[in-house]
């Protein structure tokens, strides 16, 4: 019955022709609420199937709020809000650095409530950026490819493994193309900051003719299909959500350190319905109260205790430090180095 109700309230629009703006939209869906009188416009990097359960559950609690859900990549989201002043009520992104830049440069509104007060300090910044998931960067391996081989536990072990078995891994390693993926760039820059081994790993991966991907989903499918033996820096929540469909894959959390990305929401400066945006933020901030929703979305909610269990987990810190890798020169230099390492003929 639940889905019948949902179906009646769904209008699917693949590419809304009314969004005639310069930033590139990947998808758009409008969720009409039963008694909708306000439309909350959300721009988000999260796939529709990941976020839909949250929207429906939110509308169950707030039946007067329609939701116009626009999907864009993190760079396009940045472009929309930072450069084009597109009007949205909420911006949800996994690119913490870009969200930080939006807040730092004055493109976000402050908001606070009892729900946001319960968030730990590391999960919010300036009361403008609010994290609602904690998603580790993981390694996904194909169990078939690793038959007879111990999976690596650290980056050093991974480097040795790749170096010692070029025949096995040639063309069969995948990672983000950090030039086009915001999450990939974030993970890569944090890696470079955390450990010197990152550049050696990139060199080794370059020598193995590593495949480059725009998103985690394709990497996981390719590992499942056997095209890849190993994918490095995959968003953990996506991998977990696919485990049921692809029994041949395995997720590895390294012991040396695990970057934990925080998916964050902010209210843009020119939001039309900031009150309703606040309600959505409250809903997101208290996701840890609805475990069935966590199961549906595979998005792990903010949970300090769980992070403390894993001493290797390092949540990426919100704050001006994230602006460093957005510096024009810094980014140019980083990408030049990365391209040099990954593209070896």
């Amino acid at each position: 019955m639940r889905f019948a109700h949902i179906a009646s309230s769904l209008i699917f629009l693949a590419f809304g022709p009314h969004l005639a703006s310069a930033f590139e939209v990947e998808g758009n869906r409008i969720y009409a609420a039963p008694n909708g009188n306000v439309t909350l416009k959300i721009i988000s990097t999260a796939d529709i199937n990941v976020f839909e359960p949250i929207i429906l559950e939110f509308q169950r609690a707030h039946p007067t709020i329609n939701i116009d859900y626009v999907i864009a990549s993190s760079t396009e989201l940045m472009k929309a809000i930072y450069e084009e002043d597109a009007v949205f009520d909420l911006a949800i992104s996994s690119a913490m650095d870009l969200q930080t830049k939006l807040a730092n440069d004055g493109n976000a509104q402050a908001y606070s409530s009892n729900a946001t007060d319960t968030l730990p300090d590391w999960a919010k910044w300036r009361n403008q950026i609010f994290a609602f998931t904690q998603e580790p960067a993981v390694v996904v391996i194909s169990e078939a490819a690793f038959q007879g081989i111990d999976p690596p536990k650290t980056r050093e072990e991974l480097i040795s493994l790749l170096r010692d078995n070029p025949d096995k891994f040639e063309n069969r390693v995948g990672t983000y193309d950090v030039r086009v993926s915001g999450a990939g760039y974030l993970f890569a820059t944090q890696d470079s900051r955390n450990s010197d081994s990152y550049w050696r790993l990139t060199e080794v991966m370059g020598r193995l003719n590593t495949r480059l991907y725009r998103g985690s989903g394709d990497m996981i499918s390719d590992v499942a299909s056997g095209r890849l033996a190993l994918a490095y820096n995959v968003v953990g929540s996506y991998a977990i959500s696919r485990l049921a469909d692809y029994p041949g894959i395995r997720i590895i959390l390294f012991d040396d350190y695990v970057n934990v990305m925080l998916r964050t929401a902010l209210i843009p400066r020119n939001a039309v319905h900031p009150t309703q945006s606040g309600m959505m933020i409250d809903f997101l901030a208290t996701l840890n109260h609805s475990p069935e929703l966590t199961k549906l979305t595979s998005l792990p909610p903010i949970d300090s205790a769980q992070l403390q269990e894993n001493s290797a987990a390092r949540p990426i810190r919100l704050g001006p430090g994230l602006l460093v890798f957005l510096d024009r020169l810094k980014k140019e230099n980083f990408l030049a180095n990365w391209v040099n390492s990954i593209e070896q003929e």
Binding site: G321, L329, N333
Partner: peptide
């Protein structure tokens, strides 16, 4: 002239 902006400078 080039600049390698240190992470710590802003953090």
């Amino acid at each position: 002239v080039n600049l390698e902006l240190p992470y710590s400078a802003l953090s």
